[in-house]
Design a protein around this nucleic acid. Structure first.
Length: 512
DNA sequence: CTAGGGTTAG
């Protein structure tokens, strides 16, 4: 930037500042390059003695690429009212990109009408931009209309539409379209793989990842990230390790996104040490990497490290987001770190300027409730500024179960029913509360209610890979042939855990 | 001067 300013000074002195080619080069560098300075480019742009369509386009492009879609669009509007500069195919592909990011289809339709009026609709870049914009705004029907009417489709149009159906939750339609594609490349494969991962179809994601390679396509960055995410959810450690080795072998850049995906995969597969290793090796860590690691530690019962890492974020200048707080608060909750949790909750709005959402109140209620502070938990539910949801009340109910408070449990279930938040789990918890008090008649009544109202409890389940085979565990499932041996071994382990001298003093100092 | 695919949650 320093040299750029020198060049600029030179241009002014030599009178070449009116040279559109030279100023265009400077604006492009400042606005687009990673080492540039968009604000400075805009400042220059405002003070140019004359301009060009190219320069307008470059500014609009820069705002679109640097996640400032509103500025991009208002600059476009300004361009329309300017004298002598008309939007062209380039302008529209930038504006549509901004619009897709805005996910505001009303603005998008307005641009669409301009595009039709000026005759750019069937130009390939503009058409693909339109399909992408509609798909991203969750208007896959409009995207489809353009797609069906066009004679100018390519692999990019197809991929954009596949992605639209994924976003819309129509994964089967997306797959059907994917199968029909006349031509596929790594990007289209990745789109379908991550599509499966995003809707929770992890096996299908991994199958497609393997199929992609059998088809001779090399997995790229996004495809790898999607596959790793699937590995984490499936507990598919072997596959995940293989992908990690592939990344190393092919010198694929371990950037923030890929690093986070690896951390998440290892943590979910039980390898918290390897997750740490990846975390420490990352050259740059953003809020996603930190949150992923904090969550992994919490899930491994290492709450103290989880909170320490949360505090370290601030030292590294990384600002936590709403998800980070959910992870760190649940870490506190699990290890009974009430004071730490309370302080962190309180710091949300005061220090980090994030207003607690209903989920955060859920964590707080869980924290207090598990620790047996039922009165305070109830007070939070009563006084919180948001309407409590099923998680908040569920946390309270769970606390009632843990601490045997039948009356509060009943009240909580009542308020859940009033708000129509009672799913199967709620009734099961209530019946368990009665059971712990040996009130069998009440237990039977709840169970009968459930049958009458036809509420079903979805059993919890978990997956892990052992020797390359993915095993599934379902809560309450006793169908295994060695069930008796398993249960007696579990009893032994439970006894050993109870006798284990855990160190309750986690020794963390929180800043005031 | 242009387009499609990406990570964290209870």
């Amino acid at each position: 930037m320093k040299q750029i300013k020198q060049i600029q000074t030179h241009l002014i002195i030599s009178g070449s500042f009116t040279d559109l080619y030279a100023t265009g080069k400077i604006i492009t560098f400042c606005a687009i390059s990673q080492r540039g300075d968009l604000d400075y480019a805009f400042h220059l742009f405002r003070h140019l003695p004359n301009s060009s369509t190219f320069i307008w386009n470059t500014m609009i492009r820069a705002f679109a690429e640097k996640n400032q879609p509103i500025q991009a669009n208002s600059l476009y509007k300004e361009m329309l009212h300017s004298t002598g500069f008309f939007p062209n195919n380039y302008t529209f592909s930038f504006v549509l990109k901004a619009c897709a990011e805005l996910t505001n289809v009303f603005v998008g339709r307005e641009f669409h009408s301009h595009i039709v009026k000026l005759g750019w609709e069937s130009y390939d870049f503009v058409l693909n931009g339109l399909i992408h914009m509609y798909a991203n705004c969750d208007c896959v029907g409009s995207a489809r209309k353009l797609f069906d009417a066009s004679l100018n489709l390519d692999v990019i149009s197809w991929t954009a539409l596949v992605n639209g159906y994924v976003k819309n939750g129509q994964i089967e339609v997306a797959k059907h379209l994917f199968d029909q594609m006349p031509e596929r490349n790594s990007v289209s494969w990745s789109a379908m793989i991550t599509g499966y991962a995003q809707v929770g179809m992890f096996r299908e994601a991994l199958e497609l990842f393997n199929e992609m390679q059998l088809g001779g396509f090399r997995p790229n960055h996004a495809g790898i990230v999607g596959a790793l995410s699937a590995c984490g959810f499936l507990g598919a450690l072997d596959q995940g390790r293989w992908i990690h080795a592939y990344v190393d072998r092919n010198r694929i850049e371990l950037d923030r996104v890929l690093g986070t995906a690896l951390i998440d995969m290892y943590a979910k597969c039980g390898c918290i040490d390897t997750a740490w290793k990846v975390f420490n090796e990352m050259p740059e860590r953003d809020v996603f990497a930190f949150t992923s690691m904090i969550s992994g530690l919490a899930n491994h019962g290492q709450s103290a490290s989880s909170v320490q890492l949360f505090l370290k974020m601030r030292e590294e200048g990384v600002k936590p987001n709403e998800v980070t707080f959910i992870c760190v608060l649940s870490a506190c909750s699990r290890m009974g770190m009430v004071e730490e949790g309370r302080k962190i909750f309180e710091s949300m709005s005061r220090v980090y300027e994030i207003e607690p959402q209903v989920q955060h109140y859920g964590c707080l209620v869980d924290l207090l409730g598990r620790a047996g502070m039922l009165e305070e938990a109830t007070r939070i539910v009563r006084e919180m500024p948001l309407e409590p949801d099923s998680y908040v009340l569920g946390a309270l109910l769970n606390a009632c179960k843990m601490h045997g408070d039948v009356e509060l449990g009943k009240e909580t279930v009542e308020s859940l029913i009033q708000r129509s938040l009672d799913h199967g789990g709620v009734h099961v918890l209530l019946s368990n509360i009665y059971a712990s008090e040996r009130r069998w008649e009440d237990v039977a009544k709840v169970r009968k209610d459930m049958e009458d109202k036809n509420v079903k409890k979805v059993p919890g389940c978990s997956l892990i890979e052992v020797d390359g085979v993915v095993r599934e565990f379902v809560a309450g499932d006793r169908s295994h042939v060695f069930m008796e041996n398993i249960i007696s071994l579990l009893l032994v382990i439970t006894k050993q855990l109870k006798d284990f001298p855990f160190d309750d003093d986690v020794g963390i100092e929180l800043p005031q």
